Amino acid sequence: MGGVLREQALPLLAAANNHGDLAVKLSSLKQVKDLILSAEPSSAADLFPYLLDLQSSPEPLVRKFLLEVLEDIGLNGLKHSSILMSLLFILLKDHSPLVAKQAIVTGTNIFCSVLQELSLQFHRHLTVERWLDDLWMWMVKFKGSVHSLLFEDGPLGLKLLAVKFLEIYILLFTEDGSDSDKVMAEALGRHRRTFNISWLVGHHPVLDPAVLSADANRTFNLLMDLLRSASSVPALLTISIINRCVF
């Protein structure tokens, strides 16, 4: 099966990388995604290094779609997706705002999916596999990178998405409010993968509720500090922070 998959996918990957027609590139990449999602995960993972080659595509729409492929792979089966996590961080710094914004959206959905899997795996087996622990380390790094975007020069739209991610982060690690599930579903968009800190009962080997709650509180205070310096913050960013912080 792995050999057949490679035989089908490699010409498509070559077209996605080298063809002169953007429509052909995107169509080829979509076909590769469909092949990967229909294949056995360990066989599909053999193609991931070839996907990484597309990160240097000159076409922003190809790089953006590549992130969507990463998201679908991650949400379909996390176990082998750590191979692709470097892609998330490279494209988070992409010179195209379209691509960098998609990196935040993709990372947000994977972040929530990893949290959910960490909780469920521990509940089922009272342990967490190493690959999932490694993925969580990537997610901690992602949170730090998105946090940093608020203080770097860059497009306002990117900063607004960074605030949205931080809102989700705060909600994930704050004890339930009456409307938290509804707000979370609206914030997460099409995938609506949710997690609740109350699921972390017992001594989870990776997630410490007290530490995570304290960091969520620090993140909330960070947004409040930005509001206090509103005179030096773009008006739209101030409005976004106000809207996000009234949970």
Rank of each mutant, 00 (worst) to 15 (best):
V4G: 11
L5R: 09
R6D: 09
A9I: 07
P11D: 02
A14R: 14
A16F: 10
D21M: 13
A23I: 11
V24L: 12
S28P: 01
Q31P: 03
V32T: 08
V32Q: 02
K33H: 10
D34G: 03
I36C: 15
L37F: 10
A39N: 07
S42Y: 12
A44L: 06
L47Y: 04
Y50M: 09
L52R: 07
L61F: 14
R63C: 05
L66G: 00
L66P: 00
E68I: 10
I73R: 01
G74S: 03
H80D: 15
S82R: 12
L84T: 04
L87K: 01
D94I: 00
T108G: 04
I110P: 00
C112D: 14
S113N: 14
V114I: 13
Q116N: 14
R124S: 07
H125D: 15
D134K: 08
D134I: 10
F142W: 01
S145M: 14
H147M: 14
S148I: 04
L149M: 11
L150I: 09
F151E: 03
E152P: 06
D153S: 14
L158W: 02
K159S: 04
L160D: 06
V163P: 08
K164Q: 13
I168G: 04
L171P: 14
L171E: 05
S180C: 08
V183R: 15
H191K: 11
R193N: 12
V201C: 10
H204K: 00
H204T: 04
L207K: 00
L212P: 01
S213C: 12
A214D: 11
F220E: 09
M224H: 13
D225V: 11
R228T: 13
S229D: 12
V233T: 08
V233Y: 06
A235C: 13
L236C: 10
T238A: 13
I242E: 12
I242F: 11
C245Y: 04
F247T: 15
